[in-house]
């Protein structure tokens, strides 16, 4: 490479500026390099950049002195403030809990019925309960407990089990068909051993149950009494507290049209309601049970 392209090498050149081009706009000389027409100004290093560097380095050095920062050997510098993020997180949670202690603790110890009767307490608690529900339950049950295919409506007067707050607390704690040892257990068995024609007749019968036009004296009625009544009740109205829904009302979980009922009969059903023990505190579980009870009450005319 020819060295002569560097003006500093040119004979008689000033070692600092060379006899380099002066940029007419800024008045600065250029560095003398030329890359296919691109040149660079020999501008002095701006002071403000030095100050900015000093400032940002200063910030960092202070942070290193105060906070955990540099690793060495098997350890790291702890910092003068002795911060530990696990401890800080635990403290943060404790502070937040302390902020709701005065009303929240009552839900851990008192009787649900008594709590329900305390209007002032419920007024404080219900808005919190709604957000707790939206955060934990709405993904399945819908915001406001409106339900959806496979997930029962909670904002209505019908129940798979019971409307008693004590039962609701247990359902939340242990779940239904969940992996908790004390889980509620409610399974709709598969009737795949039946003739398809029998299932079709039963299905027509179940559809008719809903609008009250079902004939219990028919062959299908007999099949129902024989196979289904033990769980769904003699008249199909449920209420036996075994997790089997009433088939005579408007409320449905999966659907009470012919096709869906055929599906239910062929394969059976066992919806899973997770157990919340360990994931929510006792107080939160009681609070949610009362919220669900209130949703149901509010929905009734």
């Amino acid at each position: 490479m020819p060295e002569t392209t560097d003006p500093k090498q040119l004979p008689g050149a000033d070692p600092h500026t060379g006899n380099r081009l002066i940029d007419p706009v800024s008045g600065y000389d250029t560095t003398g390099h030329d890359w296919g027409g691109i040149t660079e100004l020999n501008t002095a290093f701006p002071k403000i950049v030095i100050w900015a560097l000093v400032l940002s380095f200063g910030y960092s050095v202070i942070a290193w002195i105060l906070l955990p920062a540099w690793p060495y050997g098997g350890d790291y510098t702890r910092g003068l403030l002795k911060r530990d993020q696990q401890v800080q997180a635990a403290e943060g949670f404790r502070d937040l809990e302390a902020g709701r202690q005065d009303w929240m603790t009552r839900f851990a110890s008192e009787d649900p019925a008594e709590l329900q009767a305390d209007a002032a307490l419920m007024q404080t608690a219900l808005p919190a309960a709604r957000r707790l529900f939206d955060d934990n339950c709405a993904a399945c049950h819908g915001a406001g407990g409106t339900g959806g295919p496979g997930f029962p409506v909670l904002a209505d007067e019908t129940w798979l089990w019971s409307s008693a707050p004590e039962t609701l607390v247990e359902i939340l704690r242990y779940g239904i068909n969940s992996d908790h040892p004390d889980t509620f257990y409610g399974e709709m068995p598969a009737f795949d051993w039946m003739e398809r024609s029998e299932r079709a007749a039963l299905s027509t019968f179940v559809v008719a149950l809903q609008d009250g036009s079902a004939d219990f004296d028919s062959d299908a009625g007999a099949l129902f009494t024989e196979n289904c009544a033990s769980c769904h009740g003699d008249d199909g109205a449920g209420g036996l507290e075994v997790g089997a829904p009433a088939l005579t009302d408007a409320a449905v979980i999966y659907g009470q049209d012919h096709a869906t009922v055929m599906e239910t009969l062929r394969h059976g059903r066992a919806g899973v309601m997770p157990s919340w023990e360990g994931r929510l505190s006792d107080a939160e579980i009681t609070l949610l049970a009362l919220y669900v009870a209130q949703l149901s009450e509010a929905a009734q005319p």
Binding site: L96, E97, A98, G99, R100, Q101, W103, M104, T124, A125, P127, A128, R130, R131, L132, F133, D134, D135, A138, A143
Partner: peptide, 14 residues
Amino acid sequence: AYDENGALSYSFLE
């Protein structure tokens, strides 16, 4: 955000 009762002001959904 927390409300005056120490509970979350908004659910994630909101």
